[in-house]
């Protein structure tokens, strides 16, 4: 059983890693963040599988902490930026001069 769970953990990780392409691709910051978010949920799943497979103490707590904080990246993202920054890609090389 534990082998299966380990393989499953690997598969989850591989799947969400595919999503990392979206981090590279974007095109908007919101898309990049979505990919990181996906990695968070996938990470929790992979951890649970890993924890049960290897019967390691504390792994459930770790997954719990990750799930608890899963929304933080998005919260930080939307509160620390103006709406224009959410979609617009900042700082393209030939930028306007604010000064």
């Amino acid at each position: 059983m534990s082998e299966f769970l380990l393989v499953a953990a690997l598969c989850v990780l591989g799947t969400v890693a595919l999503g990392l392409v979206a981090i590279l691709r974007g095109p908007t910051p919101a898309d990049r963040l979505s990919a990181a978010q996906l990695l968070g949920t996938g990470g929790v799943a992979a951890l649970l599988l890993l924890g049960v497979a290897t019967d390691t103490a504390g792994v459930t707590d770790l997954a719990l902490v990750l799930a608890l904080l899963a929304a933080f990246a998005a919260v930080a993202f939307v509160t620390q930026r103006t709406p224009a920054d959410v979609v617009a890609e900042p700082a393209s090389p030939p930028a306007q001069e604010p000064e």
Binding site: T28, A30, L33, S34, Q37, T41, V44, L48, T60, A63, L64, A67, L68, A70, A71, A74, V75, F77, V78, R81, P83, A84, V86, V87, A88
Partner: peptide, 23 residues
């Protein structure tokens, strides 16, 4: 734990969606 993740998901969607829509 899953319920927590659901809560996070149910918040993240509207949060990001709101930001994108406002723009």
């Amino acid at each position: 734990l899953w319920l927590l993740a659901l809560l996070a998901g149910a918040t993240v969607g509207p949060l990001l969606g709101h930001a994108v829509w406002t723009h």
